[in-house]
Design a protein around this nucleic acid. Structure first.
Lengths: 234, 234
DNA sequence: GCAAAAGTGTTTGGATTACACCCATGC
DNA sequence: GCATGGGTGTAATCCAAACACTTTTGC
């Protein structure tokens, strides 16, 4: 960005608007976040949450979906709005207000790729993320909190889990998110009401008794909720 | 820098940013929202949520606090961020992104006043609010939902209740918010753990047995939470 | 057989619910 | 006295936590 550019910027407009897109995935018992390594100043070389300015005539979720698509080639995923950050000095080069969205993806079904604006990307376990560019650590903390709140009341964990999962993978997702251990027997009693499809398939390549595979029964869930026979609660 | 570039640029950054401030109060067993009657187009003559453009060098909560102060002369209240709305056509005169905040006030301690930009204001029970200007009905619905979620997990009900309240006023606040009736004896058992100051005073001017007055014991609450002896849950 | 994790049953104590009853005040 | 809401006790039930136990696989 050359200097003229910045002068024009400040002369005509006092602020601009961006969205940041926090893409969460689950593997190896850990919730990961997709980060990009910045290759332009400011914060060149540092890890950041993917984001971009909102285009004219583009709705905010649409902008977030564009970023998501650029990185994952995934389309039309459910986006969850998180917090909006607008502190006057949060961006060193001008006033940029950013609205954070998060998306949950089945990590084994995508191959996140570098894009024009992100030549190095990486999945990093949420609890191991250190310093980030801008105020992105704040954005992550706030957004992960929002994710945790939704994990308690909506069946969005199944957006993170693979289509077929074991009950232990399911349990470990919550154990990682809330940093607590649950008793296996009690956990299974609690989730008994959740509508699952029990497959005949089992885990393979494990050196112990293989676990049964389950799927979330989306259509049965919708029916149950419609008839007020069940509310998801963890 | 050539001229084309500049035109592109202006187009790109021709948004403006506002905050809307939803001010809730509680009286007569109902949660009320402070609305203003617009006296300029668009939507002149219609009811709307108070809001204003964000000033340069002003943080978002600061802008919301400014609106709150203009209308109520209250300062430094806790503001809760709600949803951000940015649909390209949500404002008929241009692209305006708005970030919604809500504040909870003790309605009997303020005297909401008209201001330069709001010559008619009114407290309206939340469940009786009809059509509003712009997409303000959407904003209200989303924000009242956020309020309800926080009412379940944080002791913010005491920001709405008067300093000294009866247990029935307390109960009725939740009954109004969630549109359900609670059993009195069971409700009182549930709230037994909440730290209250029990006053010797009683209700006056009621034509039945006067109820005892209580206050929320803020400092005890903070101690209990710090020591993880209590979490607010309704 | 052994290690490792899958998977299930029992007991207990605390919380939730339904319901019944008594109490204090104004008129 | 009676109407009105304030205020409390009991018993049945449900739910969550703690814990122990059996099962199935690989090696």
């Amino acid at each position: 960005m050359d200097n003229n550019y910045k002068i024009e910027f400040e002369k005509f407009f006092s602020y601009s608007l961006s969205v940041d897109c926090l893409i969460f995935g689950y593997k190896d018992g850990q919730i990961h976040l997709l980060l990009i390594k910045r290759n332009i100043d400011p914060f060149s070389g540092e890890w950041a949450i993917p984001g971009d300015l909102v285009y004219p005539d583009e709705d905010l979720p649409q902008a977030a979906n564009r970023i998501l698509f650029d990185l994952t080639k995934l389309n039309d995923l459910k986006l969850h709005q998180s917090e909006t950050f607008g502190h006057p000095t949060r961006h060193p080069q001008g006033r940029v207000i950013t609205c954070a969205y998060f998306a949950l993806i089945k990590i084994d079904e995508v191959n996140a790729v570098a894009s024009s604006w992100a030549n190095e990307i990486s999945w990093i376990p949420v609890h191991e993320i250190g310093k980030l560019a801008f105020d992105h650590k704040l954005i992550l903390n706030s957004t992960f909190n929002n994710l945790k709140i939704k994990l308690k009341t909506e069946p969005i964990c199944f957006d993170l889990l693979p289509d077929k999962f074991t009950l232990n993978e399911f349990q470990q997702l919550y154990e990682y998110a809330f940093k607590t251990d649950f008793n296996k027997a009690n956990f299974r009693k609690k989730i008994k009401q959740i509508p699952f499809v029990a497959h005949n398939e089992k885990q393979t390549k494990v050196k112990h008794r293989p676990a049964k595979l389950f799927s979330f029964d989306q259509s049965k869930y919708i029916d149950l909720v419609r008839d007020e026979l069940f509310t998801f609660k963890m």
